[in-house]
């Protein structure tokens, strides 16, 4: 408990994050290289989709991350709203651009995977549609944050929005699924996990962990930036900046 108490203060979190970043960055780089080599070279082509299924190794991890980051963001928002913990708001604010990036990657790679599979760039597939709405939710969150000047109000207002969003995401997901099954054209091939062999599953899991580590690495960098910006008038920030010369 003492540990959490200490490191939830920006002053102590800042150096801790600084020490963790190189490690996280190194792990990300190694996992990315292993995952890419395994996914692009070692894994055999799919018997149905050929080599196009290899898009899965970026598409699926970013789709997973897009949801995961929203959950992290909403939990951070709730903690900052209820207990008024500054660091939780920093966490939520720093997560949003990363989550939006993962969502964007999932959308574009999904569309690039869909073209050879479906013959068109965009199909109103349940998963792509949900991902698109998730992207809008991220954009709304960031737009709200950006248009409020007072940082306290920006934190609280966006926290409410994130909490409303997380309550709605399952409903939206379910609605889009239902809508899609009703309108599903018979000829369309389902985009998604091809019959997964262990040789495909291992690189997928490695890439998923790599994306996760990437998120943590950049998150820490972003959180440090936020902290510096918010605490710029405090003595400890002055010491850090002075120490750098």
């Amino acid at each position: 408990m003492n540990f959490f108490h200490k490191y939830s203060s920006p002053k102590h979190f800042y150096p801790l994050a600084g020490r963790l970043i190189p490690w996280f960055g190194a792990i990300t780089a190694v996992l990315m290289m292993v995952g890419l080599y395994w996914g692009l070279v070692i894994a055999p082509p799919d018997y149905q989709q050929g080599d196009s299924y290899r898009i899965m190794f970026v598409h699926v991890p970013s789709a997973w991350m897009s949801l995961f980051v929203y959950v992290v963001m909403a939990v951070g928002a709730a903690i900052s709203f209820i207990w008024n913990i500054k660091l939780a708001d920093v966490l939520a604010a720093s997560s949003a651009p990363l989550g939006a990036s993962f969502t964007l990657i999932a959308l574009v790679t999904g569309s690039l995977w869909g073209k050879p599979m479906w013959g068109t760039w965009w199909v109103w597939d349940a998963r792509l549609t949900s991902e698109l709405i998730l992207f809008f939710l991220y954009v709304g969150y960031m737009a709200l944050r950006a248009s409020i000047d007072d940082p306290r109000r920006a934190g609280q207002s966006s926290a409410i929005l994130a909490m409303v969003g997380i309550v709605n995401i399952p409903i939206i997901h379910f609605s889009v699924d239902w809508w899609h099954t009703l309108h599903q054209p018979a000829s369309v091939m389902k985009l998604g996990a091809p019959t997964i062999y262990i040789t495909m599953l291992i690189p997928l899991i490695i890439m998923a962990i790599a994306f996760q580590m990437f998120y943590f690495t950049v998150l820490l960098v972003r959180m440090r930036n936020e902290i510096l910006e918010r605490e710029k008038h405090t003595g400890w920030v002055a010491d850090i900046v002075d120490g750098r010369g």
């Binding site: 939710l137 709605n168 609605s175 889009v176 239902w178």
Partner: peptide
């Protein structure tokens, strides 16, 4: 304009059904 950005994605379930 911001309101529409925040609210429209949340409207989708109602619109669908």
């Amino acid at each position: 304009v911001l309101v529409s950005l925040l609210v429209l994605p949340l409207y989708t379930p109602v619109l669908i059904f």
